[in-house]
Amino acid sequence: MGRLRIGFYGLTGCAGCQLSVIFNEDELLDIIKLFDIRAFPFIKASNDEERFDLVFMEGLVASPHDIETLTRIRAKTKTLVALGACAHSGCIPAYRSFTLKENYEHLLYSKAKDIADVEPEPISKHVKVDYVLPGCPPDKKEILHFMKEIALGKTPKFNHNPVCVECRLNGNDCLLIHGKPCMGPITSGGCHAVCVTGGFECWGCRGPTGDANYKAYIALLKKKGYKKEFIKTRMMMFAGKIQPEEMKACLQ
């Protein structure tokens, strides 16, 4: 079997997730040995779009151009991976969905007439997504791990344990117990609890765990003195457009 034909693309986003791929400097040559990088417009001058086995798609859909790129590339690849929080949930750019148009229109859209105001959405809203590598940005080692599993022909497995599990593995003292609004218990792990290990509470960038006890969690934050609006803003920030029904109900 020849090398798998892969591509890296970006929609609306900051390109940080594509950078996370490139930050694997020591492994880049090994990646090229295993994968044929046909397209990577962010860093490559010549890009061949003929067909792909695997494409990593960064960014969310927020313009007509995004929709065009996404559907065009989806049609050419066997497997599509949402790379990073914007592709996964819509992330922070999707925040404008939660406010009134008049609150943001005058800042950009009324000035730049050629930018159409398309409803911001995660890529799964428009096309079928096979795998998600979540995070803002995604963990560079997790990207490599995923690529190894694909190269081995395995079905990649994902960590949906709460961030707390890795946080405890790292031996951290719990910030939530000390009153910080840490979102570890309701957030999917896989990041090695990098924020907490660095002394900063989890903001939930990898999205909801699927096993979160929102009721108990929100009650706990309230008990620790946080206001409802604060909790709501924090929880919606990265869950974007993929907020579970239970979470929405608890934030009512």
Binding site: N161, P162, C164, V165, R168, L169, C174, G184, P185, I186, D211, A212, N213, K215, A216, Y217, L220
Partner: peptide, 13 residues
Amino acid sequence: ADECLSCSACTSL
């Protein structure tokens, strides 16, 4: 269980 966050602090420690 209603209060439990399934965070695993209890078993880790």
